[in-house]
C-alpha cells in the first residue's frame, strides 16, 4: 500500500533535475525561466531539485563533450527507476551548430537514452513545458 502511495504521488508530482551539459546558457536560463512566475512549471506539481537521487525527470541542455559525458552518465545512474530524460535545444538533440567542433560528441542520445526531444535554439519556455508534460505521460507509462 505504501508503495502504491509513493508511485501515485511520483506521477502527480514529479521532481526535476536540470543538468547543463555544454549549452550556451540560452536553454539553461529558459529552463530557469520556466520555474518563475510567468511560466510557473510548479503548477503541474513539478519541483526543481539539486539531488539526482530525488529526481524523476532529467532535463539536459546542450551538447555532450568528452568530459561532461561521464558526469551525465553518473547523474543518470544515480536517479531512481523509472526515469524520463528530456533533451532540450538543438544542441541537445544533435549537437546543433557545434556538431562539427572537435570536442563535441553529439546529442544527448549518444550517451543516455532520451524520451522526449524539445527543439529550438534556444527552446522557448512554452516548448520546454510542453516537453515536460509529454515526459510526464511517458513517466506514467513506465510506472
Amino acid at each position: 500500500m505504501f508503495k502504491r502511495m509513493i508511485t501515485e504521488s511520483r506521477i502527480k508530482s514529479p521532481w526535476l533535475l536540470h543538468y547543463d551539459c555544454g549549452s550556451c546558457n540560452g536553454c539553461d536560463i529558459e529552463v530557469l525561466a520556466c520555474l518563475t512566475p510567468v511560466y510557473d512549471i510548479e503548477r503541474f506539481g513539478i519541483v526543481n531539485v539539486g539531488n539526482p537521487m530525488h529526481a524523476d525527470i532529467l532535463l539536459v541542455t546542450g551538447t555532450v563533450n568528452h568530459r561532461n559525458k561521464k558526469v551525465l552518465v553518473n547523474l543518470y545512474d544515480q536517479m531512481p527507476h523509472p526515469k524520463v530524460v528530456v533533451a532540450i535545444g538543438s544542441c541537445g538533440l544533435s549537437g546543433g551548430i557545434f556538431r562539427e567542433a572537435y570536442n563535441v560528441v553529439g546529442g544527448v542520445d549518444k550517451v543516455i537514452p532520451v524520451d522526449v526531444y524539445v527543439p529550438g535554439c534556444p527552446a522557448k519556455p512554452e516548448a520546454i513545458i510542453d516537453g515536460v508534460v509529454i515526459g510526464l505521460q511517458k513517466f506514467h507509462e513506465k510506472m
Binding site: 547543463d20 551539459c21 555544454g22 549549452s23 546542450g62 551538447t63 563533450n65 568530459r67 561532461n68 558526469v71 557545434f98 562539427e100 567542433a101 572537435y102 570536442n103 563535441v104
Partner: peptide
C-alpha cells in the same frame, strides 16, 4: 574546467 568546452573558435576553419 572543461565541462562546457566545445571548441567553437576552431569552427572558423569550416
Amino acid at each position: 574546467f572543461g565541462f562546457v568546452h566545445r571548441g567553437l573558435e576552431k569552427l572558423a576553419d569550416i
